[in-house]
Write a protein that binds this DNA or RNA. Sequence first.
DNA 1: CAAACTGTATTATCTGTATTAGTACAGTTG
DNA 2: CAACTGTACTAATACAGATAATACAGTTTG
Lengths: 134, 134
Amino acid sequence: MFHLRVDPASGEPIFEQIAFQVKGAVARGELAAGDKLPSVRELARDLVVNPNTVVRAYQTLEQDGVIIRRQGAGCFVREGGTNLSEVARSRELDELVRRAVTESFHLGFGPGEIRKAVDRAVRELRFPRGGKKS
Amino acid sequence: MFHLRVDPASGEPIFEQIAFQVKGAVARGELAAGDKLPSVRELARDLVVNPNTVVRAYQTLEQDGVIIRRQGAGCFVREGGTNLSEVARSRELDELVRRAVTESFHLGFGPGEIRKAVDRAVRELRFPRGGKKS
DNA sequence: CAAACTGTATTATCTGTATTAGTACAGTTG
DNA sequence: CAACTGTACTAATACAGATAATACAGTTTG
């Protein structure tokens, strides 16, 4: 199994915390395509959180193409990917990275340190085989 | 001068949009240390936004070490940096980058494409001279 | 089949935050 | 002094996140 924690006082919405942690688990290979997620009620109980909040997290994950939800059966890690058009994907990537880099700049980090942090983060994930330059 | 736009329907709080755009302008070198920002009332008028919202944005920027606010005088781009401890800075950097990289993973991008996007973003900014590896 | 699980939907309520509005005060500048 | 700056309040509104409780619909399994 994989581990989930939630901090109600973190400022970040709980449903987003859940969604992102699942994304992290998938990206790190702790969850593989086809794997079943905890049921809405079970996870809600474990995290001491309202079931609706878990539903919201799972909805987000489905919209982002990370899981599929099957009524009666459960929620499962999805194979493919994003639903998004090429242009939308590129636009999102740029905005994501631009944001992180700008914030890093204001934390006082230079290009070298930023790139190093990126390498570290990349190394933690399990990218699909056959990708471009590593 | 530099340009500011705001989208009240974007989901992102207006005060955060303002704060981030100022951060972007500083990072790109469009605003330099010592430069004066528009007054609270002036910017509020220009953006068709409440003065309190601009105040909030400027408070955020001051907390992040980007500007200083001087009563009666105005708000100015600050020289130094972050107020944060070394460990806090590193932790923030890691979290920022980890987030962006994980989201990029789920957009279907590989390490190479992510690194390219980072290089692009880095090239748009004007990092202080004398930094480490470029 | 039937029981026990899954997700789905709905309604209501509470809370905190973002935003607006208006007013007043305090320091700076010319 | 006059006209600008930021600062500080209070109040009102709107929205989003989270909780609660209930009911319904599909799947799995004994």
